[in-house]
Design a protein around this nucleic acid. Sequence first.
RNA 1: GGAGCCAUAGCUCAAUUGGUUAGAGCGCCUCCCUGUCACGGAGGAGGUUGCGGGUUCGAGCCCCGUUGGCUCCGCCA
Length: 621
Amino acid sequence: MSNPYRTKKCHELRASDAGKTERLAGWIHNKRDLGGVLFIDLRDHYGITQIVIPPTAAFQNEVGHLPKETVISVQGQVRPRPEGTVNPNLATGEVELDVTGYERLGSCEPLPMNVFPEDLTPEETRLKYRFLDLRRSKLHQTVMLRAQVISSIRQRMIELGFQEFQTPILTSSSPEGARDFLVPSRLYPGEFYALPQAPQQFKQLLMVSGFDRYFQIAPCFRDEDGRADRTPGEFYQLDVEMSFVTQDDVFAAMEILFIPLFQEFKAEWPINANADGSFQRLAYKESLLKYGTDKPDLRIPIEIKDLTPLFAKSEFKAFAGKTVRAMAVPQAFDQPRSWFDNLQEEAKKLGAPGLAYVKVEPNSGTGVYDSGESKPVYGATLTGPIAKFIKGDAMIEVIRMAGMKLDTVATEPHKFLPTVIFFSADTNETKAAKVLGAMRVKIAEQLKLIEKNVFKFTWIVDYPMYEYNEETKAVEFSHNPFSMPQGGLDALEKQDPLTLFAYQYDLVCNGYEIASGAIRNHVPEIMYKAFGIAGYDKSVVDNKFPGMINAFRYGAPPHGGIAPGIDRIVMLLADETNIRDVIAFPMAQNGRDLLMNAPSPASEKQLREVHLTIRKPVPKV
RNA sequence: GGAGCCAUAGCUCAAUUGGUUAGAGCGCCUCCCUGUCACGGAGGAGGUUGCGGGUUCGAGCCCCGUUGGCUCCGCCA
């Protein structure tokens, strides 16, 4: 039995194979024509082997003119390379194939981008010619990493006692959350399937069905716009659900999945796990205060402080009576004025009035003591546009933030570094927090303050169950409406809804939300009550979630779960900052597939079959 | 829905304040070269400066529009 294309792969040949006649197949990776002898690096998925076309070969000129990326099959004799010409960078570097015959299997037209060397190429070209980009070592390896990560996750989940199930792709529209992708029904004119935003209800139904522990590497579809860490349209989740569990059980299950998984693929990167193998926990409210976001990047050594009370009666109108947050950044002290101006602009783009700052540095001078004796005294100097407004307790707190100890008599120089304190102030507490949170990240990026080669995980817990919508003047679910409120029915009935927490949690790593989950509300009575507070009566629940609410009437176990994002996990493990670089065939940010040319118009026949006519948007005048 | 940035040879980039014939490296083509491995050397082809309009004696450069890509806000339970 012989394969017509190859007897060996391009990573296999060794010195011990010398003398054997073998056949290799692959792409012309690179050519070196020395006039007499012609070298070709032949590449396949597995590796590279140098093949030699000797001057005596009648086809040398012909092969020499095949362009790079032509697919050929060659046969010849394996031989050790002459002394001094071994290439230690190649697994097959001790040998070469002395070619006696070749066949062209696939010719190649002029390339729109180089496969080798891998020089910079516009992403548009890389997306359009994705098959070429995927040949390049970098992306090829990332996609392989992804395959291995998924394989490892699957294996680990099975070992942890989870069962893998498939759930429908053609399902019904879910009323909450993102925009759905709709699929018109041929059999039922005017009716539509929706692609699942997540298998949420199905996995809960599996728990009601008694399967105890479910997982799935599930495609999820949401018709929302893209970001650097978010693909438009579709993505993959490790969807997980467990019965008879508390929040702690879900956390423990994920911790024993993630820590070994991350160690498997990034052994040299430390993980900030506790000694008992758990991840730290941070309440949502505290995260918003200290980091200005619910997905804090803990690699950044900057924390935000609340100074609201200190400016309550300030004469500085920009701060007085508002939420005031501040953070100290010593590394910013020597930045030029233009740098600060630029930050101001960035803050304004986020809707802030500006970004106030004050510079604090140690100083020294001479003071006259009670005894009449002149002695050196030490303190701090505040400079900058708003320095004159920082007085009294606010000043004390600001220089304390700079690192100055104020509880001793300053008889010797203070040792703190010159520092910049940045402020954000807004009547809206969340906005004040988020603006400074965004600036925290931006400053850290610019000043390179983000710790490298490390994974910093944290759970974010105690999300509010409800929030008040200023525009609609109504109480709304702040996250998943299926989450169990902490305190259950009792809390729903007795507490102010806006003070309620949900058993809702996220897992964050290096500033990315990599998982989100909840302990579910499996009790119909509590479900109706929870929806009632958000303004939906019983019939809404019955109509929108008939399958699930009905199931809960027939013996539902307490259950909960979580859904880590596969793409983002691979992104972290591949050390990439663009999610498209960990996906074989990604769409562009605008939701177009430049390779397959999707979306594209449907034919009249196709439209007729699904009973649709196209209603184009009215062009803007 | 909104904001910003980018678009010059197949690819990566340059082109002084708006001023002569838009340059270089890689790739491609021709030739030389028998031990290279990002081989080396000589020569050559390749451009409606994304597209449309405007300002100007003169536009790759300035202005308006448009297309495409990226980043961000909104959105993403």
